[in-house]
Amino acid sequence: NKFNKELQWATWEIFNLPNLNEEQVKAFIDSLRDDPSQSANLLAEAKKLNDAQA
C-alpha cells in the first residue's frame, strides 16, 4: 500500500531529524497517524522546522 510505505518513510525521517525536540517529534508522528495521506506535507513541515531550529 502506497500510503503505508510513505507513512513508514515519513515516520523514520521525522524520528531522525536532529533539531526537533521530543514533543515536536511526537506531535508530527501523531499527525501522521491521524492522516497518513498527509505524510509528504507533514514531512516537509517537519524538515522546515528542523532547519529553522538548526
Rank of each mutant, 00 (worst) to 15 (best):
D51V: 07
P18H: 08
I14L: 07
A46W: 01
A10E: 03
K26E: 10
A52F: 13
F28H: 01
A46K: 00
Q38H: 08
Q24V: 03
A44H: 11
P36N: 03
F3W: 05
A27D: 06
L32T: 02
E45K: 11
Q53Y: 06
A44S: 12
K47I: 09
E45Q: 13
A10D: 03
N19V: 01
E22K: 12
L20H: 00
E22H: 13
S37P: 03
K5H: 06
L32P: 00
K2R: 10
N41M: 11
L42Y: 07
D30R: 06
L32F: 03
L7R: 01
N19M: 06
N21H: 08
A44W: 08
A40R: 13
Q8S: 05
L43A: 04
L42D: 01
L42V: 15
W12V: 13
K48I: 09
Q38E: 07
K47A: 04
K47G: 05
N16W: 05
A44I: 14
A10M: 05
D35N: 09
E23H: 13
L42P: 01
K5S: 12
L20S: 00
F15E: 15
K2L: 07
W12P: 03
L42T: 10
K26F: 07
W9L: 13
K5W: 05
A54P: 06
W9H: 12
S31R: 13
L17Y: 03
E23G: 12
N19K: 03
L32Y: 02
K47E: 04
I29M: 07
F3D: 14
Q38K: 14
P18I: 11
D35I: 05
N50S: 11
L49A: 05
T11L: 15
S31Y: 11
I14Y: 02
E23I: 12
D30I: 09
D51H: 08
D51N: 08
S31L: 12
F28D: 00
Q8R: 05
N4F: 14
K2W: 14
K26T: 10
W9F: 10
E13K: 07
E6S: 04
A27V: 09
N50P: 01
E22Y: 13
V25W: 02
E45H: 09
P18G: 11
W12Q: 15
L32V: 06
K26A: 11
D35P: 00
N19W: 14
A44P: 02
F3E: 15
T11I: 15
A10I: 14
D35T: 06
E13T: 06
Q8L: 13
D34F: 09
E13N: 03
E6D: 12
A27T: 12
A54I: 11
Q8Y: 13
L43S: 02
V25S: 04
N4H: 13
A52K: 11
